[in-house]
Amino acid sequence: MTPFTEIRGKAVPLMMADIDTDQMITREFLITKSRKGLGRGLFHHWRFVDGKRVENFPFNWDWATDPQILIAGPNFACGSSREHAVWSVMDYGFKAVIAPSFGVHFRRNAYKNGLLPVILEANEVEHLAEAVTQSRGKQLIHVSLPQQTVTLDDGPSYRFEIEEEPKAALLEGLDEIGLTLRHTTAIDAFQKNDAPLRPWVYLRNDR
């Protein structure tokens, strides 16, 4: 996993509430053997209708090229646990998503892939979205994970909370499986103690 420390980049707002992952990436893009290249599927049917670009969709605004930060409405990416939603956001070029709240699966999946989900107050998110839109993307946003801050070029700066574990993992780009495998002794011990208590859990290989 690539580590995340900080970025300063262009943001685009997508402020609708409760956008579900079915909208983010539709069925045709789910059929894949790879996590790569899904950016073209992100909001595809909102960006294009009948093969034509939808000009008033934020991703298609003339200044909204190569954004790195997505500013989103409440309960962003709710619904299905499809990790494709995170992969497509990252493949599109986003490094961080700022919203008042996230769908549970999306947030966890984001951490695992090195995408930073930032939770701010609704009015703070709205302020960022307005500033970015009014300046037509000229106002960049600086997201610092070590400081836990989101700062607009012309201020203000907002602080966000993040749990210790994902923060450390993101900062160092740690592979969680590797980390957990360090607990192999504990896993073995758990199973050894548990097996006589709950023998029905531990099916045999030959079943």
Binding site: R35, S81, R82, E83, V86, H105, R108, N109, K112, N113, E165, E176, I177, T180, L181, H183, T184, I187, Q191
Partner: peptide, 17 residues
């Protein structure tokens, strides 16, 4: 329910965080 990365974690460790 879990995502693909978490499933990979379970396959390797039989645990989840």
């Amino acid at each position: 329910g879990i995502g693909v990365s978490e499933a990979e974690h379970i396959l390797a460790t039989q645990t989840i965080r």
